[in-house]
């Protein structure tokens, strides 16, 4: 099985220096765990279809990308494209010529446009299914499929069994990346392949320095549910049974929990 981890040229949030985004390091850890499990699953013998996983990047340089070696990646291919050009055509052509069963990407890049759109556009271009916000990957009972855990709000999970090939984006709640090994990062060599010339992506939006905009204050203001509850909100010395009934009815009415 071939696994490809998509790597983007990130910038560190604080220092602004080239670095590998955290979720992509986590994606590498997920791919490594999957490859290990695949080899172990065949009882030590060489599996018929050997697991392989590598990184893929489309961009003008490998600054920051090479950090991925330090997190345990063994091979990285870089598709040479011009500065500012759209990486999608180059990535799509490469992945069509060298198909992968599983393509892992970050949820959002850090330091580019950060829209998180690239995996979706790639899925559309390759005609593959896409699954977002994955935190764990495990083998499934069906052959040629894997079981993914998707992070949902409030600690919930969605467990999806998906037939491969597929594109998957990784959520920051996935297991922590392997510790960074400087010597490995130094030793690794990025293989450069020719990309596909694409026009410099013209965005319909103007770009300017960021201006921080305050968020709205969270309060139980008028219009939200709390202010609508008219009357009947204060009960002085009710019977405890009555008080319990009032509380449970209130919780069920506002739809937080159901107890029956």
């Amino acid at each position: 099985m071939r696994i490809v981890v998509l790597l983007s040229a990130g910038r560190h949030r604080v220092s602004g220096r080239p670095s590998l985004p955290g979720v992509e390091a986590q994606a590498i850890a997920l791919a490594a765990a999957l490859a290990d499990a695949g080899e172990a699953g065949t009882g030590g013998e060489r599996p018929p279809s050997a697991m392989s996983f590598s990184g893929l990047h489309a961009g003008p340089g490998d600054e920051g990308i090479a950090d991925a070696f330090g997190h345990g990646l063994e091979a990285i291919d870089r598709l040479e494209i011009a500065e500012g050009a759209d990486p999608l055509p180059a990535l799509a052509r490469h992945l069509k010529e060298h198909p992968a069963e599983l393509i892992l990407a970050g949820r959002r890049a850090e330091g580019g446009e950060d829209t998180g759109l690239l995996p979706y556009a790639l899925a559309e271009a390759l005609g593959l299914p896409i699954l977002s916000d994955v935190t764990a990957i495990a083998a499934a009972d069906e052959p040629g499929a894997l079981r993914f855990d998707q992070a949902l709000p409030k600690g919930a999970k969605r467990r999806v069994t998906l037939r491969l090939p597929a594109i998957v984006t990784v959520h920051p709640l996935a297991p922590a990346p392997a510790p960074f090994v400087f010597a490995r990062a130094r030793r690794g060599v990025v293989r450069t392949l020719s990309g596909l010339p694409a026009p410099v992506a013209a965005s319909p939006f103007a770009e300017k320095p960021h201006r921080a905009r305050p968020k709205l204050m969270r309060s139980a203001a008028a219009g939200s549910g709390a202010a609508d509850e008219a009357g009947d909100k204060l009960h002085v010395h009710p019977d405890p049974q009555e008080a319990a009934r009032l509380i449970l009815d209130h919780i069920e009415r506002i739809g937080i929990r159901r107890y029956s």
Partner: peptide
């Protein structure tokens, strides 16, 4: 965008 350094507007 760009890690919170720039913004896209339109």
């Amino acid at each position: 965008s760009r890690g919170g350094r720039r913004e896209q507007a339109g």
